[in-house]
Design a protein around this nucleic acid. Structure first.
Lengths: 240, 240
DNA sequence: GTGGGTCTGTGCGCTGCCATACACAACCGT
DNA sequence: ACGGTTGTGTATGGCAGCGCACAGACCCAC
């Protein structure tokens, strides 16, 4: 348990809490490292902490019996990992994995649940966030059904970049393929296509976005739907 | 506003409410017809009522700019249509359409919201249901990514049958195709295949399930994941 | 700098679903 | 009984993504 003041401004949800509520959390909020690949919670296992990513990204993915996987949603500095805690189920049939290394603020589930049940401000903020997350999942389903790998890669890159600071992402094509639930070779082709169009630069696990508007033009409507819904449901944040 | 006693036992969520809470709702619960194709709520439009299907099924689907569609989740007598009301957003970027005609119990959003904010029993029940719904959406995304049309049709049939009484469904292949987001011809082929295997009988909009265990054996793991999660999260109901 | 692991690019045949087009059968009203 | 509408079966060609196999390119450790 740390005593030094924790900077809470890195997470949009946390920094949207009423100050008096936040004050109660501060002593228990712990800044933790979230290395690439860390499993934040496992499918079907009761979560003990919630995590507020600061400069990391956490991917919620379902792992099938045969080992294949598919991303369901992604959580970054706009959200919280572990909604099952306050939704009442305690666990979910999917896994949360750190997709982009960084740090996050961790809070014990007990404190979170108490706050949720006591403060209607906390409750309503968390539920609005959850609704946004639902939209992201729904749109993932739609996108998986109807759109090309090319478009999905654009969507995925944009969603990820929205949840980070810079314009660079550390992520191999293999990992992206796991997230999208496609073959690595498919990602290679799609990424090459984006690179040839001058939208990104890709080199051994380092992706740099060169032309964000270009990506936005190339992706499907799904990205926009999700983006707009997050903007609508969550308190505005000063332009980053 | 009806005065005759409304039978609430047809909906699992409603009948799981504490009796004293339910008593407050009774005067305002209205039994309404839900004909095939009725749009319960429209994408982006604030919902004014919630609906508890009794012997109808409502499909949540996203309609794309080009008119194509994809089902995100399905709600029957185990659930409620209009979660955006208590989640705080008021609306969602998808449409709710009656997929199987029947009746439902309608409640004004105002009353629902008040109950949600006042009664922690109502709140927790609704949130647990919402978590189950989230799982269904997540699994839809996974299924869309990885599984064959054949398996998806099985999943869809099973999910639908779980939400109805008998073993018959009134539904053209065209409509099923809209839900699954595939071509009608694809559904024809898949349905023929199931029919040849003796699992269903199909005739001009009438589907009869002949061999439920057979369907369960043929579908993907997605159905089971969703089924188990609904069973886990929602209060047990006497065997139907 | 050399060798081994990691990451990316490429080729090939295969399959599942798409788009289009059309045949036919069942039902429905008059 | 008849013609239109609705629902279902079938064929043909095409394409996106898959599975597999392998080649090169880069990076790091020794």
């Amino acid at each position: 348990m740390k005593n030094k003041p924790v900077d809470v401004s890195g997470n949009r949800l946390l920094s949207s809490l009423p100050p008096e509520e936040l004050a109660k959390w501060l002593p228990d909020l712990e800044l933790v490292e979230m290395p690439l690949g860390l499993v934040v919670y496992e499918s079907g296992v009761t979560v003990r902490h919630v995590y507020f990513p600061v400069d990391s990204i956490v991917s919620l993915l379902y792992v099938m019996e045969d080992g294949a996987s598919a991303e369901i949603a992604v959580v970054g500095n706009e959200g919280i990992v572990g909604i099952a805690l306050f939704m009442g189920g305690g666990s979910m049939p999917n896994r949360a994995v750190v997709q982009s290394a960084g740090r996050g603020l961790r809070l014990s589930g007990k404190i979170m649940t108490e706050a949720f049940n006591r403060s209607s401000a906390v409750l309503h903020l968390m539920l609005r966030y959850t609704q946004a997350l639902i939209t992201q999942m729904a749109q993932t389903a739609v996108c998986n059904r109807h759109h090309s790998l090319d478009q999905q890669l654009c969507r995925w890159l944009l969603l990820s970049m929205d949840r980070l600071r810079g314009n660079e992402l550390i992520m191999t094509q293999e990992l992206i393929a796991n997230m999208l639930g496609v073959r690595r070779e498919g990602v290679t082709e799609a990424a090459l296509s984006l690179q040839r169009a001058g939208l990104i630069r890709y080199a051994r696990g380092h992706i740099t976005v060169l032309d964000r508007p270009g990506l936005e033009a190339r992706t499907c409507e799904c990205y926009d739907v999700v983006r707009k819904e997050y903007d609508r449901l969550l308190p505005a944040i000063e332009a980053s």
